[in-house]
Computed example of a mutant assay.
Amino acid sequence: MNHPLKSLALVVCLALLSGGCEQRAEQDKPRQKTDLSQDQQISALLKGKRQLYLWSVYWDNESSLTSVYQHAGKIAALGDFAASYTKKNRLFLPAASQELAKRVRQSSVAKLPVYLTVVNDRPNDLKSLELLQSLLETPESRKQAVQEIVSLAKSQHFSGVELDFEKIRGDLSLWRKFISFEEELQTRCQKGGLQLRVVLESSTPKTVKLPKGPDYVVMCYNLHYSGTKPGPKADKAFLKQVARKFKQLPNVSYALANGGFDFKGKSAAALTSSQVAALLDQKKVIPKRDAESGAMHFKYGLHEVWYADSTTLAEWAKTLDQVSGRQVAISLWRIE
């Protein structure tokens, strides 16, 4: 028989050991993670036979090609980002962008349409209004700019041109010049066997009457970024507002963004999905999902991170579908 005091001591020890084991087991459990993988994001957006367009950036093309090859049979097209301008306003395509188009063309996914994305960036002058004023100012300058774009697209064997001129916003005078430029570009693209996509900011005035013919892509992101309070790149209220505003625009689709921002004070550092995943592992934090946006968020120190995972992207696309009354085509910024 056991001594009563020895039995009591044994019970206490077992309880302590059990509690310690449970605590260690809880600590050893895998932390809650949302799926940030490229494959999961693409698969989530492709559900229901949705048309999906992807952007690849010249500084990250090597890893992007893996996703392109894997999903080439399912995605509608690829945007090669980007041709920009020199200080002397001459169109320039980085060698990496040329290489991406060449490798797709020479691979087993050669039939995948690849668009030349053209942006109004110059060295140390991103989204340059001064550049746009110069390019669009006169019929002669517009003709020259159109010729330069089409010649580059043809020489590099692109399937189409994607025009991404930003920050025009409420400048109606500049919009009139842009529309003349767009009409001429559309005519030249048709003659050259090129498709034309025009990317629009959500701030584009509703009064601007854009020409029929090109495909239009409305950017639905950067609701929160540097200079704003911390928050998601989009929320459902914002998406509904954008979809209602552009619902009557012909051939309209929408662009969503993965990744997120790391906010500290009034500044915000952009994060790709892989950078978010690395930060979650490093900081050992458990993110929460925001009900109003579907986005994920977490804090560490003085930082607050907001980002989109595959569930977020699927919810955002569904919100656009509901307002549009159809399954809309989506462009994803960006693969990595």
Rank of each mutant, 00 (worst) to 15 (best):
H3W: 08
K6E: 15
E22M: 13
E22A: 14
E26D: 07
Q27G: 00
K33F: 03
L36M: 12
L36E: 09
D39K: 15
A44V: 11
Y53R: 04
Y53M: 05
W55T: 12
S63D: 11
L65Q: 12
V68Y: 01
Q70C: 00
A72P: 08
A76T: 09
A77C: 00
G79M: 13
D80L: 01
S84D: 15
T86Y: 06
T86I: 01
K87A: 12
F92Y: 08
F92S: 09
E99W: 04
K102D: 03
R103A: 02
Q106N: 12
V109K: 00
L112P: 00
V118T: 08
V119D: 01
N124Y: 10
Q133N: 11
S134L: 08
L135H: 10
E137N: 14
P139E: 06
R142L: 11
R142A: 14
R142H: 05
Q144R: 15
Q147E: 13
E148W: 10
S151E: 14
S151V: 05
Q156E: 13
S159C: 01
G160E: 02
E162A: 07
L163Q: 13
F165S: 07
R169K: 14
I179D: 06
R188Q: 12
C189D: 00
G192E: 12
G193W: 00
V198P: 01
V199W: 07
L200Y: 09
S202C: 06
T204A: 11
T204E: 08
P205N: 13
V208Y: 02
L210D: 05
C220N: 09
H224G: 12
Y225K: 10
S226F: 10
P230R: 10
K233D: 13
Y254S: 03
L256E: 03
D262I: 07
D262A: 10
K264A: 09
G265D: 03
A269L: 13
A278H: 02
L280T: 12
L280V: 09
D281S: 15
I286Q: 14
D290K: 04
D290V: 09
E292W: 04
S293K: 08
A295N: 02
L302M: 12
L302P: 14
A317L: 03
K318C: 05
K318T: 09
V323D: 02
S324R: 02
G325N: 03
Q327Y: 10
S331E: 00
I335W: 07
E336L: 10
